[in-house]
């Protein structure tokens, strides 16, 4: 192979690798929860971005956290729900590791919690294919991906009284 062609191929490989969804993500089934439901290690290599997390928090198609939780400062979000606790000051009350565990699978911290598990893919009763009402096949895509979890956790961590 001519030298320049080899170089081009190598460059293309590097470019592909960096554009691909992070190789170093922890898959839902591989997450290590501690005995109180916290997750010590970040789920993705890229640090959580609180600004992205704030968007995911209020976005109906992704996190939609706002459906059940309220944050006083979020005057941009109409009709905040009150099923779950207010998240004002949540960044004071919980460590990042605890927040990561709660966002990923709250039932490991609060066994009776109504909160959906955002980073879980199997073990459901009559799992569906999203909101179609039809059967889905486990493993289901998680409700949020690893980076989205990290972003939301980074955002919640900023909520200080």
């Amino acid at each position: 192979m001519p030298r320049h062609a080899a170089f081009t191929a190598a460059a293309a490989l590097v470019a592909m690798a960096s554009a691909m969804p992070l190789a170093a993500e922890t898959a839902p089934q591989d997450v290590a929860y501690d005995d109180i439901g916290a997750i010590a290690e970040p789920l993705s290599e890229t640090a959580g971005n609180p600004e992205e997390g704030a968007k995911i928090y209020a976005d109906k198609g992704t996190g939609n956290c706002v459906a059940c939780h309220a944050i006083s400062a979020r005057t941009d979000a109409e009709f905040q729900g009150n099923i779950g606790p207010s998240l004002d000051g949540a960044g004071d009350r919980w460590s990042v590791e605890q927040l990561r565990g709660i966002v990923a699978d709250a039932k490991r911290t609060f066994p009776e919690s109504m909160m959906p598990s955002m980073y879980k893919t199997a073990g459901y009763v009559r799992p569906g294919d999203a909101f179609t009402g039809k059967a889905g096949t486990e493993p289901l895509p998680p409700l949020l991906n690893a980076q989205q979890i990290e972003d939301v956790v980074a955002y919640i961590a900023t909520l200080k009284e």
């Binding site: 009559r126 799992p127 569906g128 909101f131 009402g133 059967a135």
Partner: peptide, 12 residues
Amino acid sequence: FRGCIRDTRAET
């Protein structure tokens, strides 16, 4: 009922 169960992302 069908709508409610569908909205849990279940097979209704």
